[in-house]
Simulated scan of single mutants.
Amino acid sequence: MGIRKKNNKNPPVLSHEFVIQNHADIVSCVAMVFLLGLMFEECEFAQPLDLDDSTILGHNECAIMQLSFLIRPHYVHFYAYILFVSWILGGSEETTVNYFHYGLKDVATVFFYMLVAIIMHAIIQEYMLDKINRKMHFSKTKHSKFNESGQLGAFYLFSCLWGANILVSENLLSNPVSLWDGYPHTLMLFQMKFYYICQLGYWLHAIPELYFQKTKKEDIPRQLVYISLYLVHITGAYVLNLNRLGLVLLVLHYFVELLFHVSRLIYFSNEDRQTGFTVWAVLFVLGRLLTLSLSVLTVGFGLAGAEKQGLNLAEGSFNVLFVRVTVLAAICTTQAFMMWKFINFQLRRWREHAQTQTLKKKPSSSKSKSKKANGVNGSVGASGADSPRARKEKSS
């Protein structure tokens, strides 16, 4: 026997298959280059508290350190000194709270955290979802849906907990008037700004993931529509200084979506467990109504009666009629689109359930007819079950 040649399973370097298989490692190497900027501290800056305005770039280390501006949030506005009482020592201490606003350099930070989201996506896929898929032996359709629900479920859970923590810490739930009071809300705490940066980074990472995950061509338009809706609404809330309202609506929406994806994961493990979908359907409708109510209350009434009116880009105020109407129209159109998709989804589920019930009834009805024909159920015919079937004579 001749020696069999080994098949080269490794795809050619820089081919499509190579990039897809190793995209997490490639992105990790790119992110490591940016992280190198945190290792050098030899630069001298004109304003040490804000590295955005650095002016001395004399050394090579300085050029590398400039890469660190992608990692940290920018535009520190001022430092507020807070005097609080220590309950243990009975003394007082001074702490500083950094407030931020947005700017063009946030685009670089969003890009870096988009790379981080791609890496986290690959880690969850390889170390969690792929192991479960190998044990459950899903079909191709269930495999893709399970991966989608697993990834989005993890993201929604993390975003809900983080967003709820910000809402509680800033007393936005206990004081709804703060959603529009004091507009424009140009200054944000670190958590608020970082939350929006991470949200934009995650939904931007979903676009190259369509290529990395080999998404079917017929599913790409649907995915792009949802990704675009998230990016438009989150960016709008961030740029128009409606970050408080946007945070409340995001947490509300993410909670409902989290329940759906958890219900779908439970359904894949056991198809008889469908109670979660019923609870999700009720909360979905309530979530849409609450979203519309908060939007109309904040944008339609709260901002309309605010002290600062007019368009002032220097102060970050967009409180004019055209902007308010555009924001409400965008929110209402999106909610109507989601309700339309929800109704179609429920109708499709009901039709599939009705077809399943019909198929289950057909075999039972055919069995009962055959039993009646064979003399079961008390009626025995002349050529029924009591008389054996006559054998055919063999032709000689």
Rank of each mutant, 00 (worst) to 15 (best):
L67Q: 01
T298R: 02
E271S: 13
L231D: 05
A306G: 15
S159A: 09
V85E: 03
V325S: 11
F69P: 02
R273Q: 10
L347K: 13
V299T: 03
Q309C: 11
I20H: 09
L172G: 12
Y226A: 08
N344V: 08
T333M: 10
H23K: 07
F138Q: 04
K131H: 01
K5H: 06
A117W: 03
Q335A: 06
A31R: 10
F100A: 12
Y211G: 06
L242M: 14
T278P: 01
K372A: 08
V232T: 13
L311M: 09
A237M: 03
S149N: 00
S15G: 04
L224K: 07
T326C: 11
M65S: 12
E17I: 02
G246V: 05
L115D: 05
N243I: 12
L290H: 00
V299Y: 00
M120F: 07
H23V: 09
H23F: 15
Y230S: 13
G37N: 03
T326H: 02
L258F: 10
I82G: 00
L67R: 06
L35H: 05
S139C: 03
H143A: 06
M192D: 14
L224T: 07
Y196F: 15
G236C: 02
A382N: 10
A31N: 12
L229F: 07
L290W: 01
Y226P: 11
V376E: 13
L289I: 11
W87R: 09
N10P: 00
K214H: 13
T356S: 10
P11A: 00
R349L: 06
D272R: 12
R134Q: 09
R288V: 05
A237G: 11
F194M: 15
K362L: 14
D50G: 12
S92D: 01
Q191E: 15
V110M: 12
R222H: 07
S368A: 13
V97H: 10
E61C: 11
F345P: 00
G182Q: 01
Y238I: 05
L187Y: 12
K341E: 08
V232M: 09
T55D: 14
K372H: 01
G378V: 05
R288D: 06
I56D: 11
H121P: 02
F78Q: 15
L252I: 13
F345V: 02
L303T: 08
M192T: 15
L57F: 15
I227Q: 10
K142Y: 03
V256W: 07
L347G: 00
L240E: 03
H59G: 13
Y79M: 15
L231M: 11
G316R: 05
G153Q: 00
Y156H: 06
Q223P: 05
E41Y: 03
V279G: 05
G2W: 05
W162Q: 04
F318M: 02
